[in-house]
């Protein structure tokens, strides 16, 4: 190695005694005047944190806002003329002004809880609350029964073989098709309506819970076996927590389905509820009221989905 260095040193040209002159170093490039001027300017102000945040929010909201505006304009252009079968947005605003602006009519909140008047006019929020009450009962029942049935067919292969075909067939039956059977079974409007919600929401809960149990990684089972967990401990320490994400997927689809069933349910049990409101407005040829009700149903359904998803995240974290 040392010898190599010497060889290179011998072959190398002799070092110059003084640093090379400008001519020896080659062409000089003139630095552009504009660039020099730019460097002399004070530094530009960095965008403030608030500014960046506003930018981000605008980026998130603007596309939706623009889309909504375009939609409203197209709708108005398409349905704005006199002969249109469907009311345009302006007409909806005028005709249903009372429905839109006074949703809480007949609803009072006091120390003893929420009251919705039984007689007379009820605002749309009152109908929504009535419907939510029904959905809450039907959906809670289907959540409890669904998770239990899902656990059963997920853990027991014979229960799975016996029940899964039945569930696969029944889950495709639309809510309205259950209506006559439901009425025949219960002979009464109130339980029939709740049964409709129950039977619509339960299938995704059962099937997702079962899939969760079946997809527990083999390694968790091996851990349980090495630790010699008894069946109860295995269920509560391993199966249940391992299934939480699947269960909540089922619950989330289920809550959407139960809300879908509300119109069918309230065809049975008339008088109140958003489903009834839609039928009522249709029968009274108040299409603009129907449109307002549709928007309410959509927004409430969306909120229900988000609430269940948030609860799922909360449970998964603990």
């Amino acid at each position: 190695m040392a010898q190599m260095t010497v060889e290179i040193a011998e072959n190398a040209p002799p070092l110059p005694e003084s640093p090379p002159t400008l001519e020896q170093r080659g062409v000089l490039v003139e630095y552009p005047k504009s660039a020099i001027a730019r460097r002399l300017l004070p530094p530009g102000k960095a965008p403030s944190a608030l500014h960046e945040r506003l930018n981000r929010i605008a980026g998130a909201i603007l596309p939706t806002a623009i889309m909504l505006t375009v939609l409203l304009v197209v709708w108005q252009l398409a349905c704005g003329h006199e002969s249109s079968a469907l009311p345009g947005p302006l007409k909806v605003w005028q005709e249903s002004h009372d429905v839109i602006m006074h949703p809480l009519k007949g609803v009072t909140l006091d120390g003893s809880g929420l009251h919705i008047t039984e007689e007379g006019d009820v605002g749309i929020a009152g109908h929504i609350l009535r419907s939510l009450g029904r959905v809450l009962i039907g959906y809670s029942l289907s959540a409890v029964a669904g998770v239990m049935l899902g656990m059963l067919i997920g853990t027991n292969i014979y229960a799975y073989r016996a029940l899964d075909p039945l569930f696969q067939v029944l889950r495709t039956v639309p809510p309205l098709a259950w209506l006559p059977i439901s009425l025949a079974i219960f002979q009464d409007a109130r339980p029939s309506a709740i049964f409709l919600i129950f039977i619509t929401a339960i299938w995704p809960i059962i099937l997702n819970t079962a899939a969760g149990v079946q997809n527990i990684p083999a390694s968790y089972r091996n851990v349980a076996r090495v630790l010699a967990l008894n069946p109860l401990e295995y269920f509560f320490r391993i199966v249940l927590p391992a299934c939480v994400p699947h269960i909540f997927t089922g619950l989330r689809i289920g809550v959407g389905m139960s809300w879908l069933a509300i119109v069918a349910a309230e065809m049975v049990q008339g008088g109140t509820g958003i489903g009834f409101f839609i039928w009522d407005s249709y029968n009274s040829s108040l299409l603009s009221d129907t449109i307002v009700a549709l928007l309410w149903i959509g927004m409430v359904g969306f909120s229900l989905d988000r609430i269940v998803a948030a609860v799922g995240r909360l449970v998964a974290r603990t």
Partner: peptide, 10 residues
């Protein structure tokens, strides 16, 4: 001691 450690994530 499992190769994939098999810790319970919850």
């Amino acid at each position: 001691v499992f190769q994939d450690h098999s810790l319970l994530p919850w």
